[in-house]
């Protein structure tokens, strides 16, 4: 009886080991098939872009492409900056100071990802109730600091990493 039990145990161990190690292998094979859909090395390498902003007049903005998405670069007038900073933070769905959204000393330059945080449309400039941007897809309003004021968008437009040089 005990001999037979031993036999059963060893068999169980063998089967469990085979199944387990087999499953590990299947998992190891599935990962490459999933990971191949992630951005490839060429995509990852296109992480930076340079823009010449010397031609942008105060009050105007340009749009440039970065990683397949638009970047708004707006040169704000002193009046617009003032307007952005006069807002009561309690009125904002996603409270954030204008100072946090620009580089110190370069307050006139607003650089942000021109993508509505609701479902990814590109907002129209100089439209909407807050003198900023308006997303035509589902009616989100953004102010001159790119902060959401009204509509379904949950957060302010994103500020990418950027720096000024030359």
């Amino acid at each position: 009886m005990s001999k037979e039990e031993k036999k059963v145990n060893r068999r169980d161990f063998l089967f469990t080991a085979s199944y387990t190690i087999g499953a590990v292998g299947v998992g190891a094979v599935i990962w490459p098939m999933i990971d191949q859909m992630n951005p490839d090395k060429a995509q990852q390498a296109l992480a930076t872009t340079e823009v010449d902003i010397s031609q942008v007049e105060p009050g105007k903005s340009i749009t440039v492409l970065w990683r397949g998405k638009p970047i708004f670069v707006k040169r704000r007038t002193p009046g617009e900056i003032q307007e952005a900073r006069a807002v009561n933070l309690d009125d904002l769905p996603d409270p954030q100071n204008d100072e946090e959204r620009v580089k110190e000393g370069k307050d006139e330059w607003l650089v942000m990802l021109g993508v509505c945080t609701h479902l990814g449309c590109v907002p129209l400039k100089d439209k909407g109730d807050y003198n900023g941007w308006f997303c035509p897809c589902h009616g989100s309003h953004y102010d001159v600091s790119g902060r959401v004021r009204k509509g379904p968008a949950p957060t302010n437009m994103e500020i990418p990493k950027f720096e000024f040089f030359r």
């Binding site: 490459p32 990971d35 191949q36 992630n38 090395k41 995509q43």
Partner: peptide, 13 residues
Amino acid sequence: EHIMRNVNYGWLI
């Protein structure tokens, strides 16, 4: 060549 060089695990696949 893009598959072989850039795509994740592209060479393997």
